[in-house]
Design a protein around this nucleic acid. Structure first.
Length: 433
DNA sequence: TCTGGGGTCCTAGGACCC
DNA sequence: TCTGGGGTCCTAGGACCC
Protein backbone atom coordinates (compact mmCIF):
# COMPACT_ATOMS: atom_id res chain seq x y z
CA UNK A 1 0.00 0.00 0.00
CA UNK A 2 1.04 3.57 -0.70
CA UNK A 3 -0.12 6.80 0.86
CA UNK A 4 -0.09 10.23 -0.70
CA UNK A 5 0.11 13.10 1.79
CA UNK A 6 -0.78 16.41 0.16
CA UNK A 7 -1.02 19.90 1.64
CA UNK A 8 -4.34 21.62 0.95
CA UNK A 9 -3.97 24.80 -1.15
CA UNK A 10 -0.38 24.65 0.05
CA UNK A 11 0.93 28.15 -0.68
CA UNK A 12 -2.21 29.78 0.69
CA UNK A 13 -2.03 27.61 3.79
CA UNK A 14 1.61 28.62 4.38
CA UNK A 15 0.61 32.28 4.29
CA UNK A 16 -2.27 31.67 6.68
CA UNK A 17 -0.05 30.06 9.30
CA UNK A 18 1.64 33.40 9.96
CA UNK A 19 -1.24 35.70 9.02
CA UNK A 20 -4.23 34.13 10.74
CA UNK A 21 -6.54 36.93 9.64
CA UNK A 22 -6.41 35.33 6.20
CA UNK A 23 -8.42 32.37 7.55
CA UNK A 24 -11.88 32.21 6.07
CA UNK A 25 -11.12 34.84 3.45
CA UNK A 26 -10.57 34.29 -0.27
CA UNK A 27 -6.80 34.23 -0.85
CA UNK A 28 -4.70 33.68 -3.97
CA UNK A 29 -0.93 33.43 -4.30
CA UNK A 30 0.46 34.90 -7.51
CA UNK A 31 3.21 33.63 -9.79
CA UNK A 32 6.47 35.52 -10.27
CA UNK A 33 5.90 39.05 -11.50
CA UNK A 34 2.51 38.93 -9.81
CA UNK A 35 1.36 37.46 -13.11
CA UNK A 36 -1.35 34.92 -12.42
CA UNK A 37 -2.93 32.87 -9.64
CA UNK A 38 -0.99 29.71 -8.83
CA UNK A 39 -2.70 28.81 -5.56
CA UNK A 40 -6.23 29.47 -4.35
CA UNK A 41 -7.93 29.05 -1.01
CA UNK A 42 -11.27 27.22 -0.98
CA UNK A 43 -13.01 30.60 -0.68
CA UNK A 44 -11.14 31.86 -3.76
CA UNK A 45 -12.13 28.74 -5.69
CA UNK A 46 -15.73 29.36 -4.64
CA UNK A 47 -15.49 32.81 -6.26
CA UNK A 48 -14.83 31.00 -9.53
CA UNK A 49 -11.15 31.91 -9.79
CA UNK A 50 -9.42 29.45 -12.09
CA UNK A 51 -5.91 28.12 -11.76
CA UNK A 52 -3.64 30.42 -13.79
CA UNK A 53 -6.12 33.29 -13.95
CA UNK A 54 -4.22 36.53 -14.74
CA UNK A 55 -4.02 38.90 -11.81
CA UNK A 56 -5.26 41.93 -13.71
CA UNK A 57 -8.56 40.12 -14.21
CA UNK A 58 -8.88 39.59 -10.45
CA UNK A 59 -8.60 43.23 -9.44
CA UNK A 60 -12.38 43.55 -9.35
CA UNK A 61 -12.70 40.71 -6.88
CA UNK A 62 -10.07 42.33 -4.72
CA UNK A 63 -12.25 45.40 -4.51
CA UNK A 64 -15.69 43.81 -4.36
CA UNK A 65 -15.28 40.39 -2.82
CA UNK A 66 -12.52 40.88 -0.26
CA UNK A 67 -10.04 38.83 -2.26
CA UNK A 68 -6.46 38.99 -0.95
CA UNK A 69 -3.73 38.50 -3.56
CA UNK A 70 -0.17 37.81 -2.37
CA UNK A 71 3.14 37.59 -4.23
CA UNK A 72 4.73 34.15 -4.08
CA UNK A 73 7.19 33.71 -1.20
CA UNK A 74 9.03 30.58 -2.30
CA UNK A 75 11.61 30.77 0.46
CA UNK A 76 8.81 30.45 2.99
CA UNK A 77 7.03 27.65 1.11
CA UNK A 78 10.25 25.66 0.72
CA UNK A 79 10.98 25.84 4.42
CA UNK A 80 7.41 24.92 5.40
CA UNK A 81 7.60 22.05 2.94
CA UNK A 82 10.73 20.64 4.61
CA UNK A 83 8.98 20.69 7.96
CA UNK A 84 5.84 19.05 6.60
CA UNK A 85 7.82 16.35 4.78
CA UNK A 86 9.70 15.41 7.93
CA UNK A 87 6.45 14.74 9.77
CA UNK A 88 4.79 12.99 6.83
CA UNK A 89 7.74 10.60 6.65
CA UNK A 90 6.63 9.18 10.01
CA UNK A 91 3.75 7.43 8.26
CA UNK A 92 5.93 4.62 6.85
CA UNK A 93 9.46 3.40 6.20
CA UNK A 94 10.14 5.13 2.88
CA UNK A 95 9.18 8.48 1.45
CA UNK A 96 9.25 9.90 -2.04
CA UNK A 97 8.99 13.68 -2.04
CA UNK A 98 7.03 14.18 -5.24
CA UNK A 99 6.56 17.94 -5.22
CA UNK A 100 6.75 20.86 -2.83
CA UNK A 101 3.49 19.84 -1.16
CA UNK A 102 3.13 16.11 -1.83
CA UNK A 103 4.92 12.96 -0.81
CA UNK A 104 4.27 9.27 -1.37
CA UNK A 105 4.86 7.00 1.62
CA UNK A 106 5.48 3.27 1.27
CA UNK A 107 3.25 1.60 3.84
CA UNK A 108 4.44 -1.95 3.29
CA UNK A 109 5.27 -3.68 6.56
CA UNK A 110 3.28 -1.19 8.62
CA UNK A 111 1.02 -3.13 10.97
CA UNK A 112 -2.32 -2.05 12.36
CA UNK A 113 -5.05 0.28 11.19
CA UNK A 114 -3.59 2.48 8.43
CA UNK A 115 -6.47 4.96 8.51
CA UNK A 116 -5.99 5.52 12.22
CA UNK A 117 -2.28 5.97 11.71
CA UNK A 118 -2.85 8.43 8.87
CA UNK A 119 -5.29 10.37 11.00
CA UNK A 120 -2.65 10.75 13.70
CA UNK A 121 -0.02 11.99 11.26
CA UNK A 122 -2.47 14.38 9.70
CA UNK A 123 -3.34 15.82 13.10
CA UNK A 124 0.31 16.14 14.02
CA UNK A 125 1.16 18.05 10.81
CA UNK A 126 -1.73 20.39 11.45
CA UNK A 127 -0.84 20.93 15.09
CA UNK A 128 2.91 21.31 14.70
CA UNK A 129 3.20 23.02 11.32
CA UNK A 130 -0.25 24.50 10.85
CA UNK A 131 -0.81 23.06 7.38
CA UNK A 132 -4.05 21.17 6.66
CA UNK A 133 -3.51 18.00 4.60
CA UNK A 134 -5.43 15.17 3.00
CA UNK A 135 -4.15 11.61 2.79
CA UNK A 136 -5.05 9.07 0.12
CA UNK A 137 -4.16 5.39 0.41
CA UNK A 138 -4.17 2.80 -2.36
CA UNK A 139 -2.23 -0.09 -3.86
CA UNK A 140 -0.63 2.01 -6.66
CA UNK A 141 0.48 5.60 -7.05
CA UNK A 142 -2.39 6.36 -9.40
CA UNK A 143 -4.93 4.95 -6.94
CA UNK A 144 -3.29 6.76 -4.00
CA UNK A 145 -3.54 10.00 -6.01
CA UNK A 146 -7.15 9.23 -6.76
CA UNK A 147 -7.85 8.48 -3.09
CA UNK A 148 -6.26 11.81 -2.21
CA UNK A 149 -8.46 13.65 -4.68
CA UNK A 150 -11.51 11.90 -3.21
CA UNK A 151 -10.43 12.83 0.32
CA UNK A 152 -10.13 16.49 -0.68
CA UNK A 153 -13.35 16.59 -2.63
CA UNK A 154 -15.35 14.83 0.09
CA UNK A 155 -14.12 17.45 2.53
CA UNK A 156 -14.68 20.50 0.36
CA UNK A 157 -17.79 19.56 -1.57
CA UNK A 158 -20.05 17.56 0.74
CA UNK A 159 -22.11 15.14 -1.31
CA UNK A 160 -19.54 14.65 -4.06
CA UNK A 161 -18.37 11.46 -2.34
CA UNK A 162 -19.45 9.61 0.85
CA UNK A 163 -18.57 11.77 3.86
CA UNK A 164 -16.46 9.13 5.63
CA UNK A 165 -13.80 9.52 2.90
CA UNK A 166 -13.21 13.17 3.80
CA UNK A 167 -9.60 14.04 4.71
CA UNK A 168 -8.46 10.41 4.64
CA UNK A 169 -9.50 7.90 2.00
CA UNK A 170 -8.26 4.30 1.91
CA UNK A 171 -9.20 2.65 -1.38
CA UNK A 172 -7.58 -0.61 -0.30
CA UNK A 173 -10.34 -1.04 2.24
CA UNK A 174 -13.16 -0.70 -0.26
CA UNK A 175 -14.85 -3.77 -1.72
CA UNK A 176 -15.17 -4.03 -5.48
CA UNK A 177 -18.61 -2.50 -5.50
CA UNK A 178 -17.64 0.55 -3.44
CA UNK A 179 -14.51 1.08 -5.51
CA UNK A 180 -16.53 0.97 -8.73
CA UNK A 181 -18.94 3.55 -7.33
CA UNK A 182 -16.08 5.90 -6.40
CA UNK A 183 -14.46 5.50 -9.83
CA UNK A 184 -17.81 6.08 -11.46
CA UNK A 185 -18.18 9.37 -9.59
CA UNK A 186 -14.76 10.57 -10.79
CA UNK A 187 -14.38 12.31 -14.13
CA UNK A 188 -11.77 10.77 -16.38
CA UNK A 189 -9.93 14.09 -16.60
CA UNK A 190 -9.32 13.97 -12.84
CA UNK A 191 -7.22 10.81 -13.13
CA UNK A 192 -3.49 11.40 -12.62
CA UNK A 193 -1.81 11.34 -16.04
CA UNK A 194 -4.92 12.30 -18.02
CA UNK A 195 -4.60 15.93 -19.06
CA UNK A 196 -6.71 18.24 -21.18
CA UNK A 197 -5.87 16.82 -24.56
CA UNK A 198 -6.11 13.12 -23.80
CA UNK A 199 -9.12 13.73 -21.56
CA UNK A 200 -10.98 15.23 -24.50
CA UNK A 201 -9.95 12.38 -26.80
CA UNK A 202 -11.11 9.82 -24.24
CA UNK A 203 -14.49 11.48 -23.85
CA UNK A 204 -14.93 11.52 -27.62
CA UNK A 205 -14.43 7.78 -27.47
CA UNK A 206 -17.08 7.32 -24.81
CA UNK A 207 -14.70 7.13 -21.85
CA UNK A 208 -16.14 9.62 -19.38
CA UNK A 209 -15.30 8.37 -15.91
CA UNK A 210 -12.38 6.81 -14.08
CA UNK A 211 -14.42 3.58 -14.09
CA UNK A 212 -14.67 3.64 -17.91
CA UNK A 213 -10.91 4.08 -18.10
CA UNK A 214 -10.25 1.32 -15.58
CA UNK A 215 -12.31 -1.06 -17.71
CA UNK A 216 -10.55 -0.18 -20.96
CA UNK A 217 -8.16 -2.90 -22.12
CA UNK A 218 -4.49 -1.98 -21.67
CA UNK A 219 -3.86 -3.00 -25.28
CA UNK A 220 -6.49 -0.56 -26.51
CA UNK A 221 -4.99 2.20 -24.37
CA UNK A 222 -1.58 1.59 -25.88
CA UNK A 223 -2.80 1.24 -29.45
CA UNK A 224 -5.11 4.27 -29.28
CA UNK A 225 -2.82 6.50 -27.23
CA UNK A 226 0.51 5.43 -25.79
CA UNK A 227 2.25 3.27 -23.26
CA UNK A 228 1.75 6.11 -20.77
CA UNK A 229 -2.01 5.68 -20.80
CA UNK A 230 -1.59 1.91 -20.78
CA UNK A 231 0.27 2.22 -17.49
CA UNK A 232 -2.47 4.43 -16.09
CA UNK A 233 -5.09 1.80 -16.95
CA UNK A 234 -3.05 -0.92 -15.26
CA UNK A 235 -2.44 1.23 -12.21
CA UNK A 236 -6.18 1.87 -11.89
CA UNK A 237 -6.54 -1.91 -11.76
CA UNK A 238 -4.10 -2.17 -8.89
CA UNK A 239 -1.03 -3.23 -10.88
CA UNK A 240 1.94 -0.98 -9.98
CA UNK A 241 3.67 0.37 -13.11
CA UNK A 242 5.14 3.60 -11.80
CA UNK A 243 8.14 3.05 -9.62
CA UNK A 244 8.57 4.38 -6.11
CA UNK A 245 11.63 6.63 -6.06
CA UNK A 246 13.16 6.61 -2.64
CA UNK A 247 15.82 9.16 -3.46
CA UNK A 248 15.51 11.73 -6.21
CA UNK A 249 17.52 10.95 -9.35
CA UNK A 250 19.98 13.59 -10.53
CA UNK A 251 18.37 16.13 -12.85
CA UNK A 252 18.95 15.71 -16.57
CA UNK A 253 18.62 19.39 -17.27
CA UNK A 254 18.62 22.56 -15.21
CA UNK A 255 16.88 25.74 -16.23
CA UNK A 256 16.53 29.29 -15.04
CA UNK A 257 14.01 31.33 -17.00
CA UNK A 258 12.07 34.47 -16.08
CA UNK A 259 9.52 36.88 -17.42
CA UNK A 260 10.64 40.47 -17.01
CA UNK A 261 8.95 43.01 -14.77
CA UNK A 262 8.93 45.41 -17.76
CA UNK A 263 9.65 44.96 -21.46
CA UNK A 264 13.34 45.11 -22.39
CA UNK A 265 14.72 46.34 -25.72
CA UNK A 266 18.49 46.71 -25.31
CA UNK A 267 21.05 43.95 -25.73
CA UNK A 268 23.01 45.10 -22.71
CA UNK A 269 19.98 44.65 -20.47
CA UNK A 270 19.24 41.23 -21.86
CA UNK A 271 22.82 40.26 -21.15
CA UNK A 272 22.55 41.41 -17.56
CA UNK A 273 19.47 39.28 -17.12
CA UNK A 274 21.05 36.30 -18.89
CA UNK A 275 24.13 36.62 -16.68
CA UNK A 276 22.00 36.35 -13.59
CA UNK A 277 20.02 33.39 -14.95
CA UNK A 278 23.19 31.61 -16.02
CA UNK A 279 24.71 32.07 -12.57
CA UNK A 280 21.60 30.79 -10.83
CA UNK A 281 21.55 27.76 -13.10
CA UNK A 282 25.27 27.15 -12.49
CA UNK A 283 24.64 27.32 -8.76
CA UNK A 284 21.97 24.64 -9.01
CA UNK A 285 24.33 22.61 -11.15
CA UNK A 286 27.11 22.69 -8.56
CA UNK A 287 24.64 21.86 -5.82
CA UNK A 288 23.79 18.58 -7.52
CA UNK A 289 27.46 17.90 -8.24
CA UNK A 290 27.21 17.96 -12.03
CA UNK A 291 28.88 19.48 -15.05
CA UNK A 292 27.12 20.67 -18.18
CA UNK A 293 28.30 19.94 -21.68
CA UNK A 294 25.72 21.94 -23.62
CA UNK A 295 24.09 25.31 -23.05
CA UNK A 296 20.87 26.70 -24.47
CA UNK A 297 19.55 30.25 -24.16
CA UNK A 298 16.45 31.97 -25.49
CA UNK A 299 14.76 35.35 -25.69
CA UNK A 300 11.18 36.09 -26.65
CA UNK A 301 8.58 38.82 -26.85
CA UNK A 302 5.20 38.51 -25.14
CA UNK A 303 2.75 36.33 -27.09
CA UNK A 304 -0.06 38.13 -25.26
CA UNK A 305 0.79 41.47 -26.87
CA UNK A 306 -0.62 40.64 -30.27
CA UNK A 307 -0.34 44.24 -31.45
CA UNK A 308 3.48 44.13 -31.12
CA UNK A 309 5.86 42.46 -33.57
CA UNK A 310 6.75 39.00 -32.31
CA UNK A 311 10.15 37.39 -32.07
CA UNK A 312 11.25 34.22 -30.35
CA UNK A 313 14.52 32.45 -30.83
CA UNK A 314 16.72 29.99 -29.03
CA UNK A 315 20.11 28.53 -29.80
CA UNK A 316 22.49 26.19 -28.11
CA UNK A 317 26.19 25.51 -28.16
CA UNK A 318 28.30 22.62 -26.95
CA UNK A 319 31.10 23.46 -24.54
CA UNK A 320 34.68 22.51 -25.33
CA UNK A 321 34.80 20.66 -22.03
CA UNK A 322 32.11 20.05 -19.40
CA UNK A 323 32.06 22.62 -16.61
CA UNK A 324 30.15 24.06 -13.70
CA UNK A 325 32.06 27.35 -13.76
CA UNK A 326 29.67 30.31 -13.61
CA UNK A 327 32.00 32.45 -15.73
CA UNK A 328 32.26 29.92 -18.55
CA UNK A 329 28.56 29.18 -18.53
CA UNK A 330 27.73 32.89 -18.52
CA UNK A 331 30.12 33.55 -21.36
CA UNK A 332 28.55 30.84 -23.49
CA UNK A 333 25.00 32.00 -22.72
CA UNK A 334 25.85 35.60 -23.57
CA UNK A 335 27.48 34.57 -26.82
CA UNK A 336 24.21 32.89 -27.79
CA UNK A 337 22.13 35.94 -26.86
CA UNK A 338 24.41 38.21 -28.83
CA UNK A 339 23.91 35.99 -31.86
CA UNK A 340 20.12 35.74 -31.69
CA UNK A 341 19.35 39.28 -30.50
CA UNK A 342 17.52 41.52 -32.98
CA UNK A 343 16.85 45.18 -32.20
CA UNK A 344 13.38 46.65 -32.42
CA UNK A 345 11.50 44.16 -30.26
CA UNK A 346 10.06 44.41 -26.77
CA UNK A 347 11.46 41.36 -25.04
CA UNK A 348 9.36 39.88 -22.25
CA UNK A 349 11.17 36.74 -21.24
CA UNK A 350 14.55 35.04 -21.38
CA UNK A 351 16.22 31.97 -19.98
CA UNK A 352 19.19 29.66 -19.79
CA UNK A 353 19.11 25.87 -19.85
CA UNK A 354 21.97 23.57 -18.99
CA UNK A 355 21.86 20.24 -20.78
CA UNK A 356 23.95 17.13 -21.25
CA UNK A 357 24.55 16.97 -17.51
CA UNK A 358 27.12 14.54 -16.15
CA UNK A 359 28.69 13.81 -12.78
CA UNK A 360 31.40 16.36 -11.94
CA UNK A 361 33.78 13.51 -11.19
CA UNK A 362 33.77 12.07 -14.68
CA UNK A 363 37.08 12.72 -16.43
CA UNK A 364 36.62 13.94 -19.97
CA UNK A 365 39.81 15.32 -21.43
CA UNK A 366 39.70 17.68 -24.35
CA UNK A 367 41.95 17.23 -27.34
CA UNK A 368 44.66 19.49 -26.01
CA UNK A 369 44.51 17.64 -22.69
CA UNK A 370 43.31 20.60 -20.64
CA UNK A 371 41.86 19.82 -17.27
CA UNK A 372 38.07 19.52 -17.22
CA UNK A 373 37.84 22.30 -14.69
CA UNK A 374 41.02 23.54 -13.04
CA UNK A 375 41.22 23.09 -9.29
CA UNK A 376 41.49 26.82 -8.60
CA UNK A 377 38.22 27.46 -10.46
CA UNK A 378 36.50 24.75 -8.46
CA UNK A 379 37.66 26.43 -5.26
CA UNK A 380 36.58 29.85 -6.48
CA UNK A 381 33.07 28.62 -7.26
CA UNK A 382 32.94 26.86 -3.93
CA UNK A 383 33.89 30.06 -2.10
CA UNK A 384 31.32 32.05 -4.05
CA UNK A 385 28.55 29.59 -3.18
CA UNK A 386 29.49 29.65 0.49
CA UNK A 387 29.54 33.45 0.68
CA UNK A 388 26.20 33.70 -1.09
CA UNK A 389 24.72 30.99 1.08
CA UNK A 390 25.83 32.77 4.24
CA UNK A 391 25.30 36.43 3.38
CA UNK A 392 22.46 36.14 0.93
CA UNK A 393 21.97 35.63 -2.78
CA UNK A 394 23.87 38.08 -4.95
CA UNK A 395 26.45 39.08 -2.34
CA UNK A 396 29.15 37.95 -4.77
CA UNK A 397 28.41 37.98 -8.47
CA UNK A 398 29.94 38.43 -11.88
CA UNK A 399 30.50 41.97 -13.11
CA UNK A 400 28.43 41.32 -16.24
CA UNK A 401 25.37 41.04 -13.99
CA UNK A 402 25.42 44.85 -13.91
CA UNK A 403 25.96 47.41 -11.19
CA UNK A 404 24.19 46.41 -7.97
CA UNK A 405 22.25 49.66 -7.52
CA UNK A 406 21.33 50.25 -11.13
CA UNK A 407 17.65 50.16 -12.05
CA UNK A 408 16.86 46.86 -13.68
CA UNK A 409 13.85 46.92 -15.96
CA UNK A 410 13.89 43.16 -16.17
CA UNK A 411 13.78 42.61 -12.41
CA UNK A 412 10.82 40.66 -11.16
CA UNK A 413 7.75 42.44 -9.84
CA UNK A 414 6.78 41.28 -6.34
CA UNK A 415 4.68 43.96 -4.79
CA UNK A 416 2.77 42.00 -2.20
CA UNK A 417 5.20 39.51 -0.72
CA UNK A 418 4.97 38.39 2.90
CA UNK A 419 7.94 38.27 5.30
CA UNK A 420 10.39 35.39 5.48
CA UNK A 421 8.66 34.28 8.67
CA UNK A 422 10.88 31.23 9.04
CA UNK A 423 13.84 32.09 6.81
CA UNK A 424 14.94 35.61 7.71
CA UNK A 425 15.80 37.14 11.12
CA UNK A 426 14.19 40.40 10.08
CA UNK A 427 11.01 38.63 9.08
CA UNK A 428 10.30 36.51 12.16
CA UNK A 429 6.66 36.39 13.10
CA UNK A 430 5.76 38.33 16.23
CA UNK A 431 3.69 36.76 18.98
CA UNK A 432 1.48 39.24 20.78
CA UNK A 433 1.45 39.25 24.56
C1' DT B 1 -0.86 48.48 -18.50
C1' DC B 2 -1.19 43.67 -16.61
C1' DT B 3 -0.83 36.38 -18.43
C1' DG B 4 4.89 31.63 -14.11
C1' DG B 5 8.65 28.35 -13.83
C1' DG B 6 10.75 23.92 -13.90
C1' DG B 7 10.72 19.47 -14.91
C1' DT B 8 9.81 14.35 -17.17
C1' DC B 9 8.72 10.94 -20.64
C1' DC B 10 7.27 9.35 -25.22
C1' DT B 11 6.92 9.39 -30.25
C1' DA B 12 7.73 10.33 -34.98
C1' DG B 13 10.76 11.27 -38.35
C1' DG B 14 15.21 12.24 -40.35
C1' DA B 15 20.12 11.16 -40.78
C1' DC B 16 23.14 7.79 -41.07
C1' DC B 17 25.18 3.12 -41.27
C1' DC B 18 25.99 -1.43 -43.39
C1' DT C 1 9.75 -0.10 -66.76
C1' DC C 2 12.83 -1.09 -63.01
C1' DT C 3 15.61 1.69 -57.29
C1' DG C 4 16.28 -3.02 -50.39
C1' DG C 5 16.04 -3.92 -45.72
C1' DG C 6 17.05 -3.36 -41.18
C1' DG C 7 18.92 -1.07 -37.59
C1' DT C 8 20.57 2.92 -34.30
C1' DC C 9 20.88 7.50 -32.79
C1' DC C 10 19.41 12.12 -32.36
C1' DT C 11 16.15 15.86 -32.20
C1' DA C 12 11.94 18.42 -32.08
C1' DG C 13 7.63 18.59 -30.49
C1' DG C 14 3.80 17.17 -27.75
C1' DA C 15 1.73 15.68 -23.60
C1' DC C 16 1.79 15.50 -18.88
C1' DC C 17 2.85 16.95 -13.88
C1' DC C 18 2.95 20.48 -9.89
Amino acid sequence: MLALVDGNNFYCSCERVFQPWLQGRPVVVLSNNDGCAIARSDEAKALGIKMGAPYFQLRELERDAGLIALSANFALYGDMSDRMMTLAAGLGHMQEVYSIDESFIDLSGIPGDLVLRARKIRRRIHQWIGIPTCIGIGPTKTLAKLANAIAKSAERKPGSYPAHHAQICHLGECNAQELAALLQATEVGDVWGVGRKIGAQLRENGVHTALDLQRMSPAAAKAGWSVVLEKTVRELNGVPCIEFEDEPPAKQQIACTRSFGHPVTELIELQEAITEFACRAAEKLRKQGSHTGHIMAFIRTSPFRKQDPQYSRSASIPLPSPTSDSAHITQAANAIIKRIYRPGFKYAKAGVMLMDLQPATREQLTLDFDEVMPENRVRLMDAMDQVNQRYGRGTLKLASAGAPKAIKLWAMKQERISSGFTTDWEGLALANK
